[in-house]
Design a binder for these strands. Sequence first.
DNA 1: AATGAATGAGGTTTCATTCAT
DNA 2: AATGAATGAAACCTCATTCAT
Lengths: 207, 207, 207, 207
Amino acid sequence: MVKNVPTSIKDQFLIEKRRNQMVKGAVTLFKAKGFHRTTTREIAEASGFSIGTLYEYIRKKEDVLFLVCDYIYERVKERMGQVLDMEKKSVDCLSDAVRSYFRLMDEMQDEVLVMYQEVKALSRDAQEYVLQKERDMVHMLEVVIGNSLPYSIAEKDLKLVANNIFVHGQMWGFRRWLMQKEFTIEEYTDKQIDLLFQSLNLPERSS
Amino acid sequence: MVKNVPTSIKDQFLIEKRRNQMVKGAVTLFKAKGFHRTTTREIAEASGFSIGTLYEYIRKKEDVLFLVCDYIYERVKERMGQVLDMEKKSVDCLSDAVRSYFRLMDEMQDEVLVMYQEVKALSRDAQEYVLQKERDMVHMLEVVIGNSLPYSIAEKDLKLVANNIFVHGQMWGFRRWLMQKEFTIEEYTDKQIDLLFQSLNLPERSS
Amino acid sequence: MVKNVPTSIKDQFLIEKRRNQMVKGAVTLFKAKGFHRTTTREIAEASGFSIGTLYEYIRKKEDVLFLVCDYIYERVKERMGQVLDMEKKSVDCLSDAVRSYFRLMDEMQDEVLVMYQEVKALSRDAQEYVLQKERDMVHMLEVVIGNSLPYSIAEKDLKLVANNIFVHGQMWGFRRWLMQKEFTIEEYTDKQIDLLFQSLNLPERSS
Amino acid sequence: MVKNVPTSIKDQFLIEKRRNQMVKGAVTLFKAKGFHRTTTREIAEASGFSIGTLYEYIRKKEDVLFLVCDYIYERVKERMGQVLDMEKKSVDCLSDAVRSYFRLMDEMQDEVLVMYQEVKALSRDAQEYVLQKERDMVHMLEVVIGNSLPYSIAEKDLKLVANNIFVHGQMWGFRRWLMQKEFTIEEYTDKQIDLLFQSLNLPERSS
DNA sequence: AATGAATGAGGTTTCATTCAT
DNA sequence: AATGAATGAAACCTCATTCAT
């Protein structure tokens, strides 16, 4: 399930460290100029090492983008996992999960925006990999919703609701110019949860 | 409000014709390879004329992308206008509008996908122009919703709901690999309208 | 049997002209620095046009080398053809052919040297193509020898003798530092023909 | 006359050992991909040590090629010396020498091919050195021929015949695709010796 | 109006070599 | 002696744009 980017470096710890530098530098650049307008030299510079060193840790420019995408999904999965681990299966759990997810999407706005706009620059393979990660995440939401509902719900409806929540979270980032002029992240979260609960016939949150 | 792409050609009719050829050819290419990976030569070829001729009708490659975006929004606005023109202000009007909008998003999937993935390649100016068009469209939805509701609703809630609907429509296209394996466009539309109506406390649709 | 190098130029006459410029420029450079040490920019400059233009007439640097090889073989085949066309089938015909071939190898020394040292830089495909041309040329020599001999000779012996002659011709060029200090091309030719005739038990040439 | 490649290692025995590893690995690689397409990293790996270590035993990549060429000539000279040492000066001696030389060329095919195709990648200095070795070897053949002939022969003719033999030997390797489909090494040797003897007016070999 | 040959800036990637450990 | 991470010059190639015909 893990797709490793080849490297000629042997020190695993160094790989980790350098690639983190890369992701950090690259996200800033991609956000500002997009993947295609960013040169590999700029990425190297922003990462704090030479172009030669950059290519010791990746094979192709595309690998940087893949690393960025991977980084995002790893973070999301980690966070979602924390919420899911909580064993209490109640309605509160759902609002907590959504709130948690939205907060993460707010924190990782830049990364999400970048990923949203640039995935299609990845190879078919990498796109498929990223898509699977997305499916996994939506599935996590499905589980939370399923656990939280006091009644049973059709599989398909579950899927749709989960997808809606998922997209609403990303939308906060990728439609920032439209949403963030109107709402704070708290307002946005509250209102979306209200709408969600209403559409699911759940009791008003006490908040 | 209209942003014209300069050209050295005098014959207005010819401009229209050639640019339609361009948009058609370009969308196919952009969908397949993305804006950056598509060359101007390919666009010219797909449009049925030479690279020299292409540059008689645009100034820069970016102009082609702009023309594509413009084309999409023109179509959406036109269609939404038709729905809005209907004077009856009832709940049915809302479901009709959403249904209509979703159907259009289904028809123009490719164009929407392209636009979604490539806007950031436009210049600030053009992006601002496109963003405004999007605001206009969301506003149209706000009007429809406002007109349809039997009760009054806060401005902010209206905006959020309109944005949700807008994104749900696009989501059908840009998350096609996830949605279209699960639903037909009719199912998707019905279910989303159901959820929408429930979240708005509107009576179940009869259909 | 012809392996065309793709180009984006449509004017056939122009292709011919530009490629001749290329071959001329490239041979000089390859002779001086070898294929790998010669840069595409140098080739473009030596050809009298820009790097961009160079790449309108070829796809890869390797194509230049292929064009050079092709040029040589075309020339040799043409010249050998002239000799072979002469219908008189006598011993003189053989010495004429060898003399003719050696003279050509002398004229095209640089090209032959280049080809000798650089064929292995070609792709498998191109190498196969070039090898076939070489087989063709050796076969032409076989025919001349066969026609000239007053007695019959085993197929294998014919092949060996033809190969020897062929290599002796090239050797004049690719071992120039050793041969050309010792002999003039006339001396070299005369002496090789003497040895050849003796080994074939043919009467001493009158010359 | 010996041209030493500088190194920072003191232990002479180690130098010898490591360089043998290098030559062995390098020949395989050069044969497969040519000198220029082979990277120093590959050479190091094929030699069984790290890139850092490689550079402890050579100064520049070219040194590896030089070492390979040197190795070949050392072997040839050694073998030819053995044959020459035999004091009997007869016609048999000539056919033995040729046979011996051809056998060596067969054994060292790969090395000879590599050297043939890559000498021009050496510096002027190294090329001059290698050329001198070649002159030495041709001269050894001249001596053998001179000793074997029952009549006197002009210096120039001697030189030419020696050169022909020399090239015929290498030709077995560098024209392998053409020769080795047609002949076994024994056939090839026999036939070439036949032709040689005939051209020198020597009696048919008994064998 | 239409064509397509020409241009060259600039992008990605490779790889010989160094040097601190 | 051995290692391998770091470097950056330099190579190949692409492609948006121009302009003479």
